[in-house]
């Protein structure tokens, strides 16, 4: 009986302890807060008001504002019919061609080799990142990316290894021309789903075309000396190998993401646009 009484006492103490955490305690955190509050009397008044507002509006808490639909409300989607069927097409391509090929490829080619190829291709695309970081005036990124390129191209055996990430801890800064346009306030334009490549929009499509000039992996007439592929067939080949290789390193990822969708096309569109907004903000 005594034990039961102790048990109840403990429960009471324990749960009151839970709520006690809100009463002022001489913890360093609280001290900081109280300092800030006493610094400006008026401000603390305002804070008190907003505190009570929080209480009343408990099921809102400012979340409606934070997640206001305006931010993600898609602009006009004139191509929605086409986009929907292209999403379907890409989904089929993925399921019946890309994924099985990538699985077989992953079975035959050992992972370190595939990672090496992925690093190699990323390293070759350095000019795209350099140009776009420069255009956005991000000088720290320019120096990081240049350092990465130099390190990976030399100690990293022509970019097959990535010592810049694993040993030197220089962060990568992927930027493309779509992001550069976004950085200078260019709107997305309407959403376009590209065959094989997936979701994009008018701005990013323009971006891809411009980046093709800087990338040594895409053949452009007149720039053959600087480019690795000699014609567009070879460019396509490189893109295809890159896609298969990339898929082989991320098997199951698309399927897993797809499961979260109620309706695939708007879901992928929304994810893409959200990701681009955050990439541009970086």
């Amino acid at each position: 009986m005594q034990h039961v009484a102790i048990f109840f006492m403990l429960i009471l103490v324990a749960f009151s302890g839970c709520s006690q955490s809100t009463t002022p305690q001489p913890s360093p955190q609280k001290n900081e807060l109280s300092l800030i509050e006493t610094e400006t009397e008026n401000n603390s008044d305002v804070e008190k008001i907003s505190d009570t507002e929080d209480e009343i509006d408990d099921d809102n808490d400012g979340f409606e504002e934070e997640f206001s639909t305006e931010k993600t409300e898609t602009h006009s989607d004139p191509l929605s019919g086409y986009n929907r069927s292209m999403t379907n097409f890409n989904d089929k391509v993925y399921t019946y061609a890309l994924n099985p090929v990538a699985e077989a490829y992953a079975y035959v080619i050992p992972q370190p080799f595939r990672i090496g190829l992925s690093n190699f291709i990323k390293n070759l695309n350095f000019p795209v990142r350099l140009v776009n970081n420069l255009l956005q005036g991000k000088m720290q990124n320019v120096s990081d990316e240049t350092g990465r390129f130099l390190a990976n191209s030399t100690i990293g055996l022509l970019g097959v290894m990535d010592p810049a990430t694993s040993y030197l801890h220089i962060p990568a800064h992927v930027e493309d021309f779509g992001q550069t346009l976004g950085y200078y306030g260019v709107g997305t334009g309407f959403h376009i789903v590209l065959p094989f490549l997936g979701p994009s929009n008018l701005r990013d499509l323009a971006g891809i075309s411009v980046d093709a000039y800087a990338s040594p992996l895409i053949n452009i007439r007149g720039l053959e000396r600087y480019k690795i592929p000699k014609n567009w067939v070879e460019s396509m080949g490189i893109v295809a190998i890159h896609m298969i290789n990339k898929t082989s390193l991320n098997l199951g990822q698309y399927e897993s993401i797809k499961k979260d969708a109620l309706d695939l096309y708007p879901f992928l569109r929304d994810i893409y646009e959200q990701k681009r907004v955050s990439d541009i903000a970086e």
Binding site: F67, T69, T72, L262, P266, F267, D270, Q274, K275, A281
Partner: peptide
């Protein structure tokens, strides 16, 4: 950069 809740929110409202 993709918010899980925002993505669901969009889907549910659609």
């Amino acid at each position: 950069g993709v918010s899980i809740v925002q993505t669901y929110r969009k889907q549910f409202s659609d």
